[in-house]
Computed example of a mutant assay.
Amino acid sequence: MKIALITFTLLFSTAAWSHPHSFIDMKTEFISDNQHLSGMKMVWTMDEITSADLLYDAGKAKPGDVVWKKLAAQVMANVLGQHYFTEVWQDKNRVKFLNLPKEYNLSRNGNKAVLEFIVPFGEPQLLSAKQYRIQTFDPSYFVDMYYDNPQALIMDDTVKSHCQIELHTPKPDDSLKQYALSLDKADAPPEDMDLGQQFAQTVTLTCH
Rank of each mutant, 00 (worst) to 15 (best):
N109D: 13
N78W: 10
L195K: 09
D192E: 11
P120E: 01
I31H: 07
M42H: 10
A77H: 15
D174Q: 15
P120K: 07
S175P: 04
K177I: 10
I165V: 14
Y56S: 01
P189S: 09
D194H: 15
Y84A: 06
D25F: 01
Y146A: 01
Q90W: 03
M193C: 06
A113V: 04
A52Y: 07
D192K: 12
Y56R: 13
P150M: 04
E166V: 06
V203Q: 07
S18K: 10
L127S: 05
N78H: 13
H36K: 15
P150I: 06
H36G: 00
S38G: 03
V67K: 14
M26S: 12
Q151V: 14
E116V: 09
L183H: 13
D192R: 09
P139T: 14
I6N: 07
N105F: 02
M155V: 13
T136C: 00
D53E: 09
G196Q: 02
E29F: 12
F23W: 10
Y56C: 00
G81I: 09
D25C: 00
D174P: 05
A52V: 09
A61V: 11
L10T: 11
T158L: 06
A186Q: 15
M155P: 12
K92Y: 08
H168F: 14
D65I: 11
I3Y: 13
Y146I: 02
P139V: 08
H162N: 15
L195V: 11
G81T: 14
S22F: 00
Y84H: 11
S161V: 15
S107M: 11
N111V: 10
K102L: 01
K2V: 15
A16P: 00
F142M: 08
T136N: 00
N99S: 04
Q90S: 13
V143H: 01
S22R: 01
V143S: 01
Q90D: 12
E87C: 08
N34T: 10
D33G: 11
T86M: 08
A16K: 06
L126N: 15
F8W: 07
E116C: 01
A72K: 13
E29N: 13
A152E: 05
F8P: 00
M40F: 03
D53W: 03
Q178E: 12
V88L: 04
K70T: 10
A129R: 14
D144M: 02
Q135A: 03
H83K: 13
G81V: 07
T136Q: 02
M76S: 04
M145W: 06
